[in-house]
Structure formats: C-alpha cells, structure tokens
Amino acid sequence: MSDDVPVIETDGLTKQYGDVRAVDSLDLAIEAGDVYGFLGPNGAGKSTTIGLVLDYLRPTAGTVRVFGADPQRDPIGIHERTGVLPDRFGLYEGRSARQHVSFVAETKRADDDPEALLDRVGLADAIDDDAGEFSKGMEQRLALAMALVGDPDLLVLDEPFTGLDPHGVRRVREIVHEENDKGATVFFSSHVLGQVELVCDRVGVLHQGRLVADGTVDELRDAAGIDDDAVMEDVFVELTDVRIDAGGESQ
C-alpha cells in the first residue's frame, strides 16, 4: 500500500434495507496512523458501515476500499492486516479464552503467544476458563485480544467499551494508544462520547446514515458553533440536533 492511499475509503457508500437507508452516500477517508472515532446515536449506521468495511454486508451502491483493495475481492489480503472487535458478537461455548486466541493466530499464521495477549487485556486469570461462562466485560476483553493477534495494521473496534468496568475502559484506551504508537490505524465506533474525546485524533459523526461532521474535536466544536470548553457530548448533541432540525440534511 502506498502512503497516500487511505486505509479505509468509501465513496458514495449506501446500504438499503427495504425502505430504510441505513447508510446513505457515505464518503469517508481514514488515513494511515489515524485514530478515528465514529460517533453516532443508536441506529445511526455505525455498525452497518463497519459491516460493509469488513464484508459482513454488501453495499447497495458505492464502493469501499481497505488498504486500497476491495473487501469482496481481497478479503485475505485485507483481513491478514486487520484486527476486529465486533459489536454484538458471540463466543464459542465450551472453548477457553486460549483456544479462541489460538484459533485466530493459527488462521492468521501469526506466532503470537495467547497467554501474553490475554495477559495484556487483563484475562491472565481466566486463560483456560470456558469463554461461554464469561461476563460481558470479559467477553469484550477476549475479543480485543483476538483483534490484536498478528500485530494488525488496522484495528476496527465496534463499541469497544461496552460492558467494561473503568479499569477495562482505561485498558482499552491504553491499548489503542500503544497500537497507534506502533503504527496501527484505529477505526472505532462508540457512543461513549467522553472516551472518543480522550482517544481520537479525528471524529466522524454519523446521523441517520449520513456523515454530518468530520474532523478533529476542535474542528467539530467550531462546526457546532460552541465554545472551546464544551465537552464532546455538547458538540454531538448540537451537531445531530441541527441535522434533525434541518430534516437530516448535512450542513
């Protein structure tokens, strides 16, 4: 991949379910080295967009490129370099945390030590426990360990803070920074606005399937027309309210 190709790029990306347009003409470019936060209320289309990027879903119109390649045509090339923590996932009952991580490592042909990865996400005490018995927070930690296998160049984290206690939230933030320092691009969706502000270089706000704002946190504050002391929540409410008032039109 050449440096000038965005890690993720969408062009007019659209996903329609019957009468509902979950993602509407989305143009997005996430550059290498970014920590990009994808914000939006529930049902805004964040997970659908991630599904399109990862080829869980196929676009109704428009294109997606990841590392400059088409996810439908080159899933192997893309997924070898990508780690994924999906939203609303299930684990394999009767299999330990170690077996989950080992399975990903074997498929990716990575030589990661499952114990080291599980220790890194705070699951050192539950390595050989049945993942089917895990709490939501432990599931989330395990999924993060699976995402970290193979030192990915791109981390896609869909609502990574779900179910985590404050220690877990902090650990995720630290890992995002550590991976980003090693050169990974991080694309994550969240509605935990405070965390987005703490983690992200850039933020995109999705509302009713459309990208209504895109830029640094400061740029978004300017776009929302509120003062520099305003927290991310104020920025988000202002941006999405304005768009609702305008009938969903991007401004």
Binding site: D55, Y56, P75, I76, H79, T82, F89, T107, M146
Partner: peptide, 14 residues
C-alpha cells in the same frame, strides 16, 4: 444466530 460469524468473516479467509 450467536454472532460468532463476525469473527469468522473477519479472518483472512474467503
């Protein structure tokens, strides 16, 4: 049904 397919599809497999 469980959502574990999300891990499977995200692996380097066609």
């Amino acid at each position: 049904t469980t959502g574990s397919i999300k891990f499977l599809i995200a692996l380097p497999l066609k």
